[in-house]
Amino acid sequence: MNIFRLCGDMSHLAAIIILLLKMWKTRSVAGISGKSQILFATVFTARYLDLFTSFISIYNTCMKVFFIGTVYFTIYLIYMKFKATYDSNHDSFRVEFLIVPVGGLAFLVNHEFAPLEIIWTFSIYLESVAILPQLFMISKTGEAETITSHYLFALGSYRALYLCNWIYRYYAEGFFDLIAVVAGVVQTILYCDFFYLYITKVMKGKKISLPA
């Protein structure tokens, strides 16, 4: 564990808590993509199957259980409890266009051709693009509430901090996972446009609204 990794994890944790607070306090899931949350649930479920096969640390186990628990709770809020506020018309990204190529790629490019390994690789690839339905929804409605912007900023920062963690680990420990690094770079690049809007607008007290 290094400072980049810890900050990355805390940023990820903060993102999830910000999203839950937004939904709980406003009693609304407006502006939130249910499809992105379903993809994240798929990511966590696939990646954390190793909860049953290997123990790493109390910290590791607690974080995994928390991530899985909260993402399913988020889905429950979107599709059941606050269903009336869910904007399904604008959440129209075709997720099969992500799932199918990502699944194919996980089969073709992995560290080892074994079931758990392919599922892990699938989760890494899928995570890198799982935010696309959310970004698509914002581009469609042309705006994002400030609290949603904070959520996205924290969520995007998490993988960017992981990139710093991997650079550090490469020099400090000789650690290098090409699949995670490439997917992490792709994931971070997808947020760049949003990061720009966040810094130029949200940090100056304005909300994100795109020209029609």
Binding site: R5, D9, H12, D50, S54, I56, S57, N60, M63, K64, F67, H111, W120, Y162, N165, W166, E173, G174, F175, F176, D177, L178, A180
Partner: peptide
């Protein structure tokens, strides 16, 4: 072996 998998990460 150079490649080590990030299984201790989240």
């Amino acid at each position: 072996k150079k490649a080590k998998k990030g299984k201790d990460e989240l």
